[in-house]
């Protein structure tokens, strides 16, 4: 049986990279005594897969990983046992059992939304906040994508599903996944270009709100929708 675990990564843990987060949860699952399934062989490893890697320095309340289980208890019990062994800054929010035949979190990820805040001392937040609507209203938002061999012009507008001001921060819903993976930093870089301000990565503090997949109707819904709570 497969379960999907939703967690938040906040505070100082924003400095723990993706590979280390994976190692962290492998150990956490053991500490919590959850009955995770393992691969065969001399060095068995847990059968877990993560949804969408989070960049270093970014916080999130909408992270996911899937685990193949030999047996489960209830969602509430597993959440509680995991939370009893979490470091400050990691919190398990929900666990669902995936429906038969559900694809892995990594395979279904289609979008994520973010709040972008301003670090003091870099840019004038007002200028950005006032420009959000006009920036988003452009027909094309072009960026230069640099690959190993060439530089190509890319229009990212179709992959910005929503963009607005919320609570003095910039809210954006972006395409995420193995194709058309748009990072919020890229959007801010485009916005800096639009405002003719030099882009500085440290000017913005990014927080991910949720990770989404598409349902049968093609709407973006939470990754939790692929399963049901175990009671």
């Amino acid at each position: 049986m497969k379960i999907r675990i939703k967690y938040a990564k906040t505070g100082v843990l924003r400095y723990i990279g993706h590979l280390d987060v994976m190692r962290y949860f492998q150990k956490a699952l053991r500490r919590a005594g959850l009955d995770v399934a393992y691969s065969q062989g001399y060095s068995p490893h847990q059968l877990i897969t993560f949804a969408a890697p989070l960049g270093l320095g970014v916080t999130s309340e909408g992270e996911y990983f899937d685990a193949e289980m030999n047996s489960v208890t209830t969602s509430a019990d597993m959440v509680e046992r995991l939370n009893a062994t979490m470091a400050e800054g990691m919190e398990i929010n929900d666990i669902v059992a995936l429906k038969e035949g559900a694809k892995t979190a990594m395979a279904v990820v289609a979008g994520s939304d973010y709040l972008v805040d301003f670090r003091e001392g870099y840019v004038e937040p007002e200028r950005f906040l006032q420009a959000v609507d006009a920036f988003y209203a452009q027909e094309h938002i072009e960026i230069i994508k640099v690959s190993k061999t060439k530089e190509t012009l890319m229009d990212i507008k179709p992959f910005i599903y929503q963009m607005e001001v919320r609570d003095n921060r910039i809210y954006m819903l972006l395409s995420t996944g193995s194709v058309d993976n748009i990072k919020p930093e890229l959007v801010m870089e485009a916005m800096c270009k639009y405002l003719q301000v030099e882009y500085q990565k440290m000017a913005f503090q990014v927080h991910r709100l949720e990770t989404y997949m598409r349902n049968e109707q093609g709407e973006l819904v939470s990754l939790l929708e692929a399963g049901e709570r175990i009671s």
Binding site: G11, V12, L13, Y15, I16, G17, D20, L56, G57, A87, E88, G89, K201, M202
Partner: peptide, 13 residues
């Protein structure tokens, strides 16, 4: 922390 290698070396917790 964003500039140096392996910032997790210095955050404790």
């Amino acid at each position: 922390l964003m500039e140096i290698e392996k910032p997790a070396r210095y955050i404790g917790n």
